[in-house]
Amino acid sequence: MIEALSYPFFQNALLAGLLASVATGVIGSFVVVKRISSLSGGLSHAAFGGVGLGYLIGISPMLGALGFGLLAALIISAVYLHRQGSLDSLISMVWSVGMALGVVFIAMTPGYVPDLSSYLFGNILFVPRQFLLYALLVDLLVCLCVFLLFNRLELVCFDEEFANVVGVRAGLIFTALLLLIALVVVTLIRVVGVILTIALLTTPAVIARQWSDDLGRMMALAVGISGFCVVGGLFLSYWLAAAHAWNIPTGPLIILIATLVFGVSAIVHKRCHTS
């Protein structure tokens, strides 16, 4: 197992996974406490439209995903803030329109048809080097914003009405949060793919919530748990391939490990609090 660490591609994947975990734990905690996981799912599926557009017009699919993700974040926050129509149905629309556009754009792309499953389920074992730079930048931006805005983000997530009463610009803070979520979601498309993004964003934070009554501590814990699941998934998929010649994608394994950790944590937590 340890010999895996000597392969550059594995080192890359490990580093990418750990970098992604930092932003995931921090932002995932906000997603969980503000109860906007379906909204985050909408953003990741919207980003898939950008992947397709990237192929069609010949730019980097990840750049397209970033553009679509940020645009969807702005649309959703505008509707959320003006309470026009139902947010729930808007999210479903953004969610499926993103997927539809992605498929249409890719079908229109002449010549080589790329393998979609690496975007749908992630492909962390073969991340390009520049992805590490992107993940690092996202981490720095997320940590800086959350460090500076922590009290305001906490208040807006906790009690938006009171934030407005005291003159904190709740709308602006919420929009900033959605943009950060979009950034993180695009990182996660590389790690676990469009479809599994919500699970990696929320499961570690939900586990962390069981063990902390404080948002700051919850974030730190979520970063650790997310890192554990990603590393665990990487080693598991390496081991399955090396020992059994089973080629199982890493993304789904990461999610299954996270779910297992959640189950164990829930049982232990219940034991601790009933005895």
Binding site: F158, E161, D213
Partner: peptide
């Protein structure tokens, strides 16, 4: 307010709930 219109499951201590008022303009 008449009712607490926030999620009581939110991971926040009583002290930090009250401290948030210090963000007032």
């Amino acid at each position: 307010p008449q009712f607490a219109n926030f999620d009581v499951q939110f991971p926040i201590t009583v002290e930090r709930v009250v401290l948030a008022a210090c963000l007032a303009r």
